[in-house]
Amino acid sequence: MKSTIASAFIGLSLLFANATQAASLAPQWELTGFSQPESVYVSPEHEWIYVSNVNGNEPGFISKLSKNGDIEELKWVDGLGMPTGMGMFKNSLYVVDGTQVHIIDVESGKITKSLQANDAVMLNDLTVSDKGQVFVGDIASGKIYTQVENELVVWMEDKKIPHPNGLLAQGNTLFVANLARKLAQQFEPEEYGSIYKINIADKSLKMVNSSYRLGGLDGLTELNNSLVVSHFPAGEIYQITDKERTLLGTLDISTADISVDDSTDTLFVPFLLKNKVASYKIIND
């Protein structure tokens, strides 16, 4: 299980639909020395950037970076299993790790609680709403979990989202980027993933039209009331609205779970197979 994410999609051959390119990505800084960095978390409200490192068959860890591109502490939190997606609420960082979620106090760097999803197969990404509700996707089983007291329970399952990868809560809506119709090394065009929006109150589901069969979808974040999604391992980064999709840029192989600081229009990208993290300014042409 330790190298599942690093190896499962290396052979993907993706063919992407045409899109406009009215924006671009300008490199700012790049850092190396990570070990299979899978996810980056950043927000305008918090000082630091956090990076989850799968780290092969060794214990996984979380790195702490400055927004200027300095490594504050490479192994800020160590001894984890296979950490992947992250989210934050107040002063707590939520980190997915296999079939559980750790809650870390950002002041002390200590795990205060761990939530278990007893029937989960492979949890991957996580998001926390502005009300503090936690959502976690099981990329293998297609289930989406939420926190009830001290455990994770199934919140929703829909056949339209068989492999939920990226998750993003915005107000009363949960956006979910589906990887594809199946987990495989080769996808046919009709099997490519799309983005769906779910009404949190009644769980009604609708596809974001401009994302229809966009590709093997991974990281999902927001930028000025739009969505930004990455394609692992092709390196495509798209900005999505209800009406159109814009190709922001094509990066190196293995772009994984991205994050955006929309106060500065800055994109942060972990390169899972390159052991590096990079920062890009999003420039509207």
Rank of each mutant, 00 (worst) to 15 (best):
A256E: 02
P83G: 09
M122Q: 13
D262Q: 12
N18A: 14
L205P: 03
E157P: 02
I111C: 01
A278N: 05
M86S: 00
E188P: 00
T221A: 04
T20A: 10
K203G: 01
V228S: 02
V277F: 04
P270R: 01
L31N: 02
Y196Q: 09
E58W: 10
S230K: 00
V229A: 08
E149N: 12
G11D: 14
I161S: 06
G235A: 08
L251K: 07
N150P: 06
N209A: 13
L272R: 04
A19K: 10
E47I: 12
E38A: 14
T4Y: 13
L25C: 06
D257L: 12
I195D: 05
V134E: 14
L214F: 12
V96T: 14
Q36D: 15
D138G: 09
T173F: 03
R213P: 01
V54K: 05
W29G: 02
L74M: 13
M1K: 10
S52C: 11
D138W: 10
L174K: 03
T266H: 08
I144T: 11
L93K: 10
F271L: 07
F232I: 05
N209H: 14
Q170M: 14
T99A: 10
E191W: 05
L14Q: 14
E38V: 02
P37C: 04
A256V: 01
M88H: 03
T32M: 05
H163P: 02
L31R: 06
V42T: 02
G142W: 05
I237P: 02
G56F: 11
T146C: 13
G33P: 04
A140P: 01
D119G: 02
E47M: 07
D262R: 04
K131N: 13
M1R: 07
W48M: 11
A234I: 07
S35A: 15
D97K: 06
G219Y: 00
V51G: 07
I71L: 04
A117N: 07
Q185G: 12
Y212I: 06
A120I: 08
H163C: 10
E38Y: 04
W48Y: 11
D265Q: 09
Q186T: 12
Q239I: 04
S114M: 10
L248E: 07
A201I: 10
W29R: 03
I139A: 01
P162Q: 06
E236M: 15
M156C: 02
Q116I: 13
G249K: 08
V260Q: 07
K159L: 02
F89H: 15
I195N: 03
T266I: 15
V153F: 06
K64C: 05
A184L: 03
V42G: 04
G216A: 13
Y50L: 06
I258Y: 00
A8R: 13
